[in-house]
Amino acid sequence: MSLIKNRKLITGLFVFFLGFNASVYAEKTSKIDSAVNTEKALEAKDVVLLFQDTLLGVMKKGAELGFKGRYQALEPAIVKSHDLAKVARIVVGKEWKSFSQEQKQKLNEVFSRLSIASYAHNFKGFSGESFEYLSEDETARGGRIIHSVFVLPEDKNVKFDYMLKKKAGNWLIINVIANGVSDLALKRSEYTSILKREGFEALIAKISEKIDNYTNQ
């Protein structure tokens, strides 16, 4: 009874942090390449596809790279395709305004490290997964949603939706929604709750602990 739900939730959550494999078609890749080469701003869709492609590459070499290697390989790709500063600001909610400049910087720093470390930790290997682009939507306020599906050879597909927002002319990922579970909403609930119950230092300590766990596993 609960089995099926569990399995899907696992898959959704897992995949969410685990991996976004991109099966990017040749034409798409070349389009992205030419955009990258000419340093023209990428379309929202291409930002997602390019990021997925990088992840796929890291996954395929996952074992030989090791955690450190994966972290280093993913860092520039994540920083370039995600608006981590905005995400860090959103996940702490209204508390952001009460932080000092030092606290804001500290949060940005540990949040970025956590984001990259969790990718590096979870993108360990590759077993035939692929990623299919479905469609693109524009939101009421000018954002973009890239709909896609993560195809698992041995399991039911997982819906993957990326939300992007334009910043200084570039499309950046601010949320990933896996089978309806929004990373941003989930983190926001956790972070605001911790801030309310235990305060800023506790939040930073918990994030740092997660980074250590990922690094040392």
Partner: peptide, 19 residues
Amino acid sequence: AALDPYIFTREAFLQYRKN
């Protein structure tokens, strides 16, 4: 992954059911 497993579970559960 969870910083606060209680909240993580609650949010994931509610969002997933909604979906």
